[in-house]
Every structure is written in structure tokens, then in C-alpha cells.
Nucleic acid binder design. Structure first.
Length: 456
RNA sequence: GGCCAGGUGGCAGAGUGGUCAUGCAGCGGCCUGCAAAGCCGCGUACGCCGGUUCGAUUCCGACCUUGGCCUCCA
């Protein structure tokens, strides 16, 4: 089964063929670590985690890098405000990021390069750009000369003239062209900085991704991914500087962009202030429901976040986990779980996760009806590729029991059992009401009475 | 203003030139002491107007409308 992926560069879905099938390379623009990330920031990592899982099934060696940008003016501002070294800030939030991503069931990337560990490569790359006539030093800065790269604007479909005409920012006087962007900028003594041929300074925003990508994955990589809001100018600038620094070699063969997460109909973003932190959401809701919600829309479409959508995702998972609970005693075949062809086919079709989830629902029905080990394995196998259904069914349905006094629940259930045996249904129903008030739902079934935690 | 992506049933959300998405919610029934779960069934969905076609939600054009980018942003 071959994988087809939408390429922002060609604006069409193309059959994916890696440059070297023995080393498939993928880079995702990671966070700038100066505070906690919000759920919108997690959409790309979740989606491209699924892509990495899919690629690993097709190719023996996938190298997936997701960087940490740990040098940036926002970090500097936070460090100055708090009176600490930037490392204090970046260390804390890089770790929080790893934990948040793990909480969402995202497998760690193969590589997690840090910008500050690549200052040497950044300086070398800038020197190459200057030597090639693609960059120039001016007023203690180094700038990329957009005029030296005729293909600038290919990715975002912009032409330089329009950019100049529509420019909303004041143009720095030392720029040759208004669209030139900073590769290196000077640092004042109180700011972090590194020695360079242009004086003590620090890298501009875009260069670190180019340098880290080249350092770990090579001059040409297979897939470069990120949010659609990075398409311009970040990715456009990355293409320009990487291509020019590498003698015209193609930088990334596929460009993939996830759509924005919206909240109240607007893009969730720090500047608008309508953010929900992953850190907080993970405490409030079952993490897998958050992951399911992020996969319920196609990755290129906008996706609206809401409380109701979370509840809905929980209900869906409840249904699947109930099937698995009923089949808890059914032994699995030896070896790795099989991935159902229909789930895989959906993902191979430009990562159609909504279709894959529809297939999962069908598999759940089949497992419920047949009760067979094969059907159960198929459901779990499909879930695994999506990073779902990874919990024990009982643990899921009881929400980990963390907020429940299980002994008390069992005691009430025992009392109710006695009442029912005595056909004192009024008493039995009263106990059920009491349990409901505690947030416990019960089911009388062939195997006795079972309980679970009500949706939250 | 320029560039880009959308508008599908109560909500969410795939997809397709001519039977079916799927999920959640709702309604009716079966089952149950009653519930819950499960099972069976139900609701005449494709923004608007033209065009192409034997036939369009699906192709083409105009219009209305929502969102994203053009400044930091996943």
C-alpha cells in the first residue's frame, strides 16, 4: 500500500517516494520554549506522530527530528522579567513540553535538536550564504538578500513586489530589500550572545531550523512539517537560506502543513489570548480523548475546540473500551498486532484520520458482534497506529479511579445487590441515585453489576 | 487590498458524477424489576444562482459567507 501525501509546494496530493528508502527523513518545527504550550500547538505533533508511525511501517529507518528553539527574544524577555538565566526558562519549558506531548500519547521523536547546541553550524551556514552572495552584513546584523534568490515566494505563492506593497511593518533602514530577513543580530551585554565574525550576537528566527535540519538529516530531506501559519514567512525563508547555502539543492521534497485549531471560531493563539494549555487540559480530561479530538478532523482543515467536542470524544472512546472490556478474557494471538488494511488505507490517503476513525468504529462493531480474538486484535491494531486504545479498558472506564473512593463504591454496590436480592427495588434505586451523585454509572449485566465513571 | 483554504443532516466531520460515510445527540421499539449497555428502526444533508451532463452535493463560472497568512504564532 503506497502512501500519498499533500505537498504544499505543488498544492496537490502526490505519491510519497523517499529520496533514500533506507533513510526517510522528516523534520517538524518544534516549540520556542518560553512558557507552556496550548492545545493548538499540539495538533501538529499529534498528526505528524501518526505520520511517523505510518512511515515506520513502510520503511525500515525513519529519522524524525522535532527541534527545540531555545534562543529567542521572547525567551530573553521572560528571563529578564524573572531575573534568571535563559537556560532556567528553556530547561523548564522544554521538559514540560516533552511531558505534555507524552501525555497526549505522542512517541518521542528520534532527534530533538536544540538551537543553542548548533550555533557553530548556524554561523557556518551564514558564512556560506555571505560567500555565495546571498547574504550581507549591515549595521552589526547579517541579512539574507532576497533579491539573490529568484524563486523566493514559490511556497507561499507570493511575489516579492506584492510583499513590498502590502508590507505592514516598518522596514529597517539597513536592509537592501524590504523583504530581506535577519540571519544574525547583535546582542547587548545583558542579552545572551555568542562570538561570531560579525561580533557578539545571536541567530535570527529562521536560520536555526535550516542549520539543525542540515546537521542531522542532510541537505535535502523528505518531509518538512509545521503549522500552516508557518508557511510564510518561516518556511519560505528556510527554503531560501537552505537552498542558497547548499548550492541550489532542494531543501525539503514534501512540505506538509496542519490547519489551525480554533476556539470560539478564532485561531487559538497566544496573542489573542484564547488558549487552553495542554498542561491544564491533561489534568481535566482523559488524555486519549484530547488526542482523539485532534484526529477527528482532517489535518489540513481547521478544527474547532470545544467542551462539547471533548465530551463527544469521551463517549466514542467509552463505546470502544466497553467492547474491549467485554473481550478482556479473549486472548490475543502471539506477535505484533495486525493493522487492519482499511485503517492503513485511510491513513495512506493523505493521512485521512477521520476515515481511519470511522473504520475503527466498524472494527469495534465487528469485535462486539463476533467476540473473536481476530476482531479484537484488529481493533487494537488499528488503535495502535493512531495512538489510541492504549489503556486498560477497566482503567479507562473507571478513569484511573483516582477521584473515586473505590471501597465506598463497592460497599454501596454490595448493599444494592442485597436490596435487589430481597426485591427491595426502591432501596436499590435509591443507592443507584446515590452512586450517580458520586459520579458513578452502573450497569446490571450477565456478569453482575459493573461500574464506570460518568463522562467528565 | 493581495495570496490561500473552506461552507455537507441537531452538532462534529469524511467522501463521491448515478445504493451506504462515521461519531455524538434525539425519537420509536426490543431487552431490563427499573435503568444503563446492547440490538432493530427513524429523521428526504450537501451556502446561493447559473452552466456542462441523460443525471451534480461532487465538474465550470458568478455571487454571498467563514477562517488563515501578508507582524510573533503550531
Amino acid at each position: 500500500m503506497s502512501i500519498s501525501l499533500y505537498n504544499s509546494l505543488s498544492r496537490r496530493i502526490e505519491p510519497f517516494t523517499p529520496l533514500d528508502p533506507d533513510r526517510v527523513t522528516m523534520y517538524l518545527c518544534g516549540p520556542t520554549v518560553y512558557n507552556y504550550v496550548h492545545i493548538g500547538n499540539a495538533r501538529g505533533p499529534v498528526v505528524f506522530d501518526v505520520l511517523a508511525r505510518l512511515l515506520r511501517r513502510h520503511y525500515p529507518n525513519v529519522v524524525y527530528a522535532r527541534n527545540i528553539t531555545d534562543v529567542d527574544d521572547k525567551i530573553n524577555t521572560a528571563a529578564l522579567e524573572q531575573g534568571v538565566e535563559i537556560g532556567k526558562i528553556t530547561g523548564k519549558f522544554a521538559q514540560a513540553y516533552r511531558e505534555d506531548m507524552a501525555g497526549l500519547g505522542i512517541a518521542p521523536p528520534d532527534l530533538e535538536p536544540h538551537a543553542t547546541a548548533h550555533i557553530g553550524q548556524i554561523i557556518t551556514m551564514i558564512e556560506n550564504l555571505i560567500a555565495g552572495g546571498h547574504a550581507y552584513a549591515a549595521a552589526d546584523h547579517v541579512l539574507f538578500d532576497v533579491g539573490s534568490y529568484p524563486d523566493y515566494g514559490n511556497l507561499s505563492g507570493r511575489d516579492t513586489e506584492e510583499l513590498i506593497a502590502g508590507s505592514r511593518v516598518e522596514v529597517a533602514p539597513y536592509k537592501k530589500n524590504p523583504t530581506d530577513f535577519v540571519l544574525w543580530k547583535p546582542s547587548t551585554p545583558e542579552l545572551p550572545g555568542w562570538a561570531s565574525p560579525w561580533g557578539r550576537g545571536r541567530p535570527g528566527w529562521h536560520i536555526e531550523c535550516s542549520a539543525m535540519s542540515a546537521a542531522h538529516l542532510g541537505d535535502t530531506i523528505d518531509i518538512h512539517a509545521g503549522g500552516i501559519d508557518l508557511l510564510f514567512p518561516h518556511h519560505e525563508n528556510e527554503i531560501a537560506q537552505s537552498t542558497c547555502a547548499h548550492g541550489g539543492k532542494v531543501f525539503a521534497r514534501w512540505w506538509m502543513h496542519n490547519g489551525m485549531l480554533t476556539f470560539d471560531g478564532r485561531k487559538m493563539s497566544k496573542s489573542l489570548g484564547n488558549v487552553l494549555l495542554v498542561h491544564e487540559l491533561l489534568k481535566l480530561h482523559p488524555p486519549e480523548a484530547l488526542r482523539l479530538l485532534l484526529l477527528r478532523g482532517h489535518y489540513r482543515q481547521p478544527l474547532d475546540w470545544s467542551e462539547g467536542a471533548i465530551t463527544q470524544a469521551i463517549s466514542t472512546l467509552d463505546g470502544w473500551y466497553r467492547v474491549l472490556r467485554d473481550l478482556a478474557e479473549v486472548a490475543m494471538p502471539e506477535g505484533a498486532l495486525p493493522v487492519p488494511a482499511r485503517v492503513e488505507a485511510a491513513l495512506c490517503d493523505d493521512l485521512n484520520t477521520p476515515q481511519a476513525l470511522a473504520e475503527l468504529s466498524q472494527l469495534a462493531d465487528q469485535a462486539r458482534h463476533s467476540g473473536s480474538a481476530e476482531a479484537k486484535a484488529a481493533l487494537l491494531g488499528g488503535g495502535m497506529l493512531l495512538g489510541l486504545l492504549q489503556q486498560q479498558p477497566e482503567a479507562w472506564l473507571k478513569r484511573g479511579e483516582s477521584s473515586v473512593d473505590e471501597a465506598h463504591v463497592e460497599d454501596l454496590l454490595q448493599q444494592r445487590r442485597a436490596a435487589r436480592a430481597a426485591r427491595d427495588f426502591a432501596r436499590a434505586d435509591a443507592i443507584r441515585v446515590e452512586l450517580t451523585a458520586l459520579g458513578i454509572a452502573i450497569e446490571d449485566g450477565a456478569q453482575g453489576t459493573r461500574w464506570s465513571v460518568l463522562k467528565q
